[in-house]
């Protein structure tokens, strides 16, 4: 479904990706594991078209998408659950989940997506998405919006962060459903959520150094990545706003 071929990206003087290739196939939950600052979120930004690499190709459903815009990639079905909380003033939970749906959805469907991630809909529908919501609530609203978008490829950037153990069970179940309808690229630096993945790749030192079953990947990560070099990627907003130039 997603094929990344020979991706190379340098930001400033830092090599972020050095000939990275990976593939996510239909029905799979592919976990991308790596320490903080190894470029996992940057890879998501490249897949979305927010950052142009100097070399490499990205194929989605066998179509070369290097030149497609962010909007066009989303319309193809590549949907990101953002790691950081972004506030659009005045936007309610209902508004956000609705705009994410490609063909519009009813209130009942919005409620269904919220319930799927453990949010009691009556409480949340009209709430403005802002700092009054907890990190875990915002993360789940983000996931509900991804569900509404009916992704073919859901890229979930640390979807478990700030989520309590009870809600996490529902979130994991929602992620499995996303994979049934397409595929999931799960970005994480912890092993907590790795159990739901079907395969994992380790990003380390600007390369995917190993791909394996989740258990084996975690073991390898623990044994080999304690001191592996991080590339200290700049923050995504620094890259996108141009304060760091590719």
């Amino acid at each position: 479904m997603l094929k990344i071929r020979n991706l190379t990206l340098t930001l400033g003087e830092k090599k972020i990706f050095d000939d990275v290739s990976l593939e996510v196939t239909r029905g799979e939950i592919y976990a991308l594991l790596g320490r903080n600052g190894t470029g996992k979120s940057t890879l998501a930004a490249v897949i979305l078209g927010l950052i142009k690499p100097e070399k490499g190709d990205i194929y989605f459903e066998d179509e070369l998408i290097n030149d497609l815009s962010l909007t066009e990639r989303a319309k193809r079905g590549i949907i990101l659950a953002w790691q950081k909380n972004i506030t659009v003033q005045g936007l309610t939970v209902r508004d956000y989940v609705r705009v994410s749906a490609p063909n519009g959805i009813s209130d009942a469907e919005v409620e269904g997506h919220l319930e799927a991630v453990g949010l009691s809909c009556g409480e949340y529908l009209d709430r403005v998405i802002d700092g009054k919501l907890s990190g875990g609530e915002r993360k789940r609203i983000e996931l509900a919006s991804v569900l509404a978008a009916k992704p073919k490829l859901a890229i979930l950037d640390e979807p478990d962060s700030g989520i309590d153990a009870v809600s996490l069970v529902m979130v994991e179940s929602a992620i499995r459903r996303m994979a049934q309808d397409g595929a999931v690229l799960l970005i994480t630096h912890t092993e907590d959520i790795l159990g739901i993945s079907t395969r994992a790749g380790i990003l380390c030192g600007a390369r995917v150094i190993r791909e394996a079953k989740p258990d084996a990947a975690v073991q390898y990560f623990k044994n080999h990545c304690d001191y592996c070099e991080t590339v200290n990627t700049p923050r995504l907003d620094e890259i996108i706003t141009g304060s760091v130039n590719p």
Partner: peptide, 28 residues
């Protein structure tokens, strides 16, 4: 704000549609 624009465009909205939502939100 480019983050807000990117968030909405990552849901398939065009730049103009995303801008409209951001503007309407501020003036709501």
């Amino acid at each position: 704000d480019s983050d807000q624009l990117n968030l909405l465009m990552s849901r398939g909205l065009s730049p103009d549609q995303a801008t409209e939502i951001i503007v309407n939100g501020l003036l709501k």
